[in-house]
């Protein structure tokens, strides 16, 4: 447990002192800021600011384009970069369980990604301070939904990162996987498609647009993301221990 805590702290610390994280963070804030300002300038949104959480935490084109791409950029440093630099060897020969390594790194990425979303939340706070009459329940429930999706996308990113020292693969592979998870079910969730039942159960935009961002929390959506994230963490762990097990 002490090793786990040490690694968690070191990963968060590393993320928070690395210039690359700030570049990512700044870019994220900038794009979200532009999008938010753009929304505020549009008449329908101003007529009803309660739809803002829907656009910022779901529904919005920007969210669906940015969200799958950013977590892998954050997680690529967790394994792939360590592998490339050679810092993985000292880590894995230290007396720490592989599962602790996986969880500590994952949790660190989650903690740091919380900052990403906190920035978006801050945008709402700014708007609120200018007298907008926001329904904070909707804002927070949308925020929560966004965190849930991030949970999954960070896990896939971690998995992609554990495949070796190729940073491009870690980033592009993770993003591609996330895009697949996001859009493939949407594609099949159509009337008359024989796979509709399965696709609907995996339809992430649906869970967000008809769930979190309108204030409806469903136990299935609440468990879908952690379970799937758990699956990818498990695969990351398998990847790590198989290196120790398989001669």
């Amino acid at each position: 447990m002490r090793a786990f805590r040490a690694l968690l702290i070191r990963e968060v610390w590393s993320l928070s002192v690395s210039p690359f994280s700030y570049v990512l963070l700044g870019f994220w804030f900038l794009l979200n800021g532009i999008f938010f300002a753009y929304l505020l300038a549009s008449e329908p949104i101003r007529a009803d600011v309660d739809v803002l959480p829907q656009y910022m935490f779901g529904s919005g084109v920007l969210v669906w384009l940015l969200l799958p791409a950013f977590p892998p950029l954050l997680t690529l440093r967790l394994f792939a970069e360590e592998h490339r630099l050679g810092t993985l060897e000292p880590l894995l020969t230290a007396p720490i369980r592989d599962i602790e390594v996986v969880l500590a790194k994952y949790l660190a990425a989650c903690v740091f990604f919380l900052v990403f979303w906190a920035g978006v939340l801050l945008q709402f706070v700014v708007l609120g301070s200018f007298g907008a009459n926001l329904d904070w329940n909707l804002v927070l429930s949308g925020f929560y939904g966004a965190l849930m999706i991030s949970l999954l996308f960070l896990a896939t990113g971690l998995w992609a990162s554990a495949w070796g020292g190729n940073l491009l693969f870690a980033a592009a592979g993770g993003a591609a996987l996330n895009f697949l998870l996001l859009f493939l079910p949407v594609l099949f969730d159509q009337q008359g498609n024989p796979l509709q039942g399965i696709a609907h159960a995996m339809n992430i935009p649906d869970m967000v647009d008809r769930g979190f961002t309108v204030g409806l929390i469903d136990s299935y959506a609440l468990l879908y993301f952690p379970l799937l994230a758990g699956l990818f963490l498990f695969l990351t762990w398998v990847r790590l221990v198989s290196r120790r097990w398989v001669p």
């Binding site: 329904d135 904070w136 329940n137 909707l138 927070l140 429930s141 309108v214 204030g215 409806l216 929390i217 469903d218 136990s219 299935y220």
Partner: peptide, 10 residues
């Protein structure tokens, strides 16, 4: 049948 739902809207 297995689902629980909560309405958080104000």
């Amino acid at each position: 049948e297995a689902r629980l739902r909560w309405d958080l809207s104000s």
